[in-house]
Structure formats: structure tokens, C-alpha cells
Computed example of a mutant assay.
Amino acid sequence: MKAPFLWLAWVTVATAEVEVVAHPAVECAPGKTIVWTAAMQAAFDRLIGPKSSTPFDRVDPPNPLVARMRDFRWKEEDVLPKDGWFAVAGPSTLELTEQANAKWRKLVGGEGKPFSSGGSGLAAFVGIRRDFLFAKEFAPSGAAKLTWQPTGGGVKFFGVKGDASYEFGEQVRVLAFRPSEGTYALQFLSKKGDDTMILYLPKEGQPMMEAIRWVETWKRGWGSAEEAKMEWNEKRLHEGDDLRIPEIQLDAAQDLGAKFSGNLFFKKSQTPWRVAQATTSASLGVDAKGVKFQSTAAMEIRPFGGVTDLQKAFPRRFWFDRPFFLFLWREKAEWPCAAVWFGSVEGLMK
């Protein structure tokens, strides 16, 4: 996948059915697609979090989102894609903005100026890109459609079924399979590197943080027990399994400035600061060949007052035909670098 995304995020705004959030502490329910990427957290950390040049004291009045992001603990270098991101921070000048845009163009191998600033205060800009191929290409559905539950309507899909599923056993891990609950989670390995995609179909809507913790536990425990070859609880895709995944092309952007309300106080300054800009965008494409992902985040803070074959296999069905989670997750990372709750057909190819 040498061709980059057709990057439309800065002109694509979140609709009533799509929301981009700054932190994964969010409820997920059918009817709405919710996107979180680590880009905004990386920007936040450089201005208000542990990477800030000035120790942060408090926000007044208290802001729950600021508190959650201050308490977020992660290893940035393990979570974000290797050699697939950048972050710049400092005085909000034209030079810093141009530096960020130049890094973005180098990262995506194309044109574009997704970052801008007001020219005062402090700013942080973050860009993420990761394209990867699946170890083995799946089969597209052609004219056939997958019926989205429970609202109906067909979406394009790809996958594998029957005897051919055996050929994908080394690249598709079954992290969890609970047929009585209609719940399962699968991990898809990339052709090279440690990037993976994880799909988790819960029984019903679930908080994103809880889903991440469940999947992280399953991922960590995969392979620790003896394999149950060809049985219902085998930990790899096997012959007879039926896998169907919607094709995805999702582009969204969100202005989160209002979410960071309140006066920010730093320990070395008596002057209150305000968040003047907090914008983020995400673009995700998934098809039979692999994954394409991009995300940006921009945050500015300003002083207050400024500008503001031997055994028959047990056949299993893995149809992602109702609301599900998608995570982009490096193999050994504690957190994903992106999480999407597909609570609607928004972003699925029709």
C-alpha cells in the first residue's frame, strides 16, 4: 500500500453519527460511531501533562477531561507506530507551524498543511500515520453485501470461509470466543512489523475503556494455554470458520476546544492560561489488503486575555454485522494508538 490516504480530514467534520473524542473514557452504544486516537493525548502531554516545560498546578473550575488526561499513564514510544509519528511543541509561532506541516508532508509523502496557529502562547502539533498490509490478502465480497444489524442495509465486506480459512490460521488470532453470548475478538497480524488490527464484537454497547482493558487482557493471555486444535475454542482461525469484516473508509474531525474549559494555572506563573485551540482528525481505511490510518492533533494555550484435515473442525462464524470495536494496537503495547466504536454504518462502505 504505497499510495497514501486521500487526506480529507480537515474539511470533514464529525456528524451526528460520528464523534472524535480526546480520551477513551466514553460510553459506546448503538447508533453512533466514536473515534479515539492517541494524537490529542500526545499534544496535551506536551503543554499540560508530564512533558510540559512548566509544571502544571490546577484548572479552575475543575474540568473532568483535563483531570482524566492528566492521570492518563502510557508509554508513548510503545503505543504510537514505530517511525510513524511526530510531535513538535513550543512557542506558537509561524516557524513552529511550518515545521509541523513540513513533518506532516514528509510523513505522508504528499502535500497538505493541516496545522495552523494563532501566533501567540504555546502550541503542540502531532501527526500519526500507519499503513500496513495483512500477512495474507483476504477475499473481497464483490456484489454481495453484509446486512448491518439491527437497522438493516447492506455494506461491502471481505473475509474468508470454508476450507480456505485454514490458510489464515497464522495471521488471525482468536483472542476470545463466547458463542453463548455472541461475543468474540480477533487479532489480525501485519505482513511485517508489530502493527496489528483487533476487532471486538461485544454483546451490547460497552464503555470504550472497559473494552480496551478486556481486549488487553485477552491479548496478553493469548497463547498461555495449550492449543485446542480444530475445536470451538482454538486460538487461531481454522478450516470451516466464516469471517466477514465490513470495508471501512472513515474520515472525521472534531473541534474539542469547548471541552477544555477553565483557567489553567502553572506553578511558575500567576497568570491563568486558557486552551485556545484543540482540534483533532482521523482517517481510517480497511479493506481486504490491509489498513491505512492517519491522525492529527493541534493544541494551543494562551495567557488569559489573549486571542482566544484429520479431524473435522468446529465451524465458527465471525460476522461483524452489528456494532463492534476496532483497535490499532502494537503487539507489546499496553494501549492501542486508536480505537473506534462502529455503533452505526457511518464509515462502512455501502
Rank of each mutant, 00 (worst) to 15 (best):
N101F: 06
A228F: 12
V307M: 09
D163A: 14
L65R: 07
R73P: 00
A282N: 04
P30H: 02
S53Y: 04
G221T: 00
E239F: 13
L8R: 14
A276E: 01
G90K: 10
G159I: 02
D131L: 03
L133Q: 12
Q294S: 15
V286N: 08
S295C: 05
W214G: 10
K312G: 05
D287A: 06
F177Y: 15
A297M: 07
F56A: 04
A228R: 15
F318D: 06
F320C: 01
A211D: 07
G182T: 09
G343R: 11
M209G: 05
V11T: 11
G109W: 03
D83L: 12
L250H: 01
I212W: 12
E181Q: 14
M40Y: 14
A42L: 11
R330Q: 13
R274G: 06
G223V: 11
E167L: 15
R213M: 09
A29I: 08
S281T: 14
V126A: 01
I198A: 02
D241Q: 02
K203E: 13
L201W: 01
V172F: 04
V174A: 07
F304E: 15
A102P: 00
P179A: 13
V215M: 07
W214V: 02
G109A: 02
D78H: 13
F342V: 10
V286T: 10
W7M: 10
R178H: 14
A298G: 13
F168H: 10
M40Q: 09
Q277W: 00
K268C: 02
F125R: 07
R317F: 07
K192W: 11
C28A: 14
D45C: 06
D241I: 09
A42Y: 00
P272D: 11
E334F: 07
K332R: 12
V13L: 12
P150I: 08
P114Q: 03
N101A: 01
V345D: 09
M349Y: 03
D251C: 04
W148M: 10
F125K: 08
G290T: 03
L328W: 00
K161P: 00
G347M: 04
E181M: 14
A100S: 06
H238P: 01
V66D: 06
A143K: 14
V174K: 12
P140V: 05
L107G: 01
A282C: 14
Q270F: 14
G121F: 10
P207C: 03
S180F: 08
L284Y: 09
K191G: 01
K75P: 00
T147S: 14
A211R: 06
L80M: 12
T296K: 05
E334Y: 01
D60S: 15
L6C: 08
S52I: 01
G121W: 09
V18M: 11
Q277G: 00
Q294K: 13
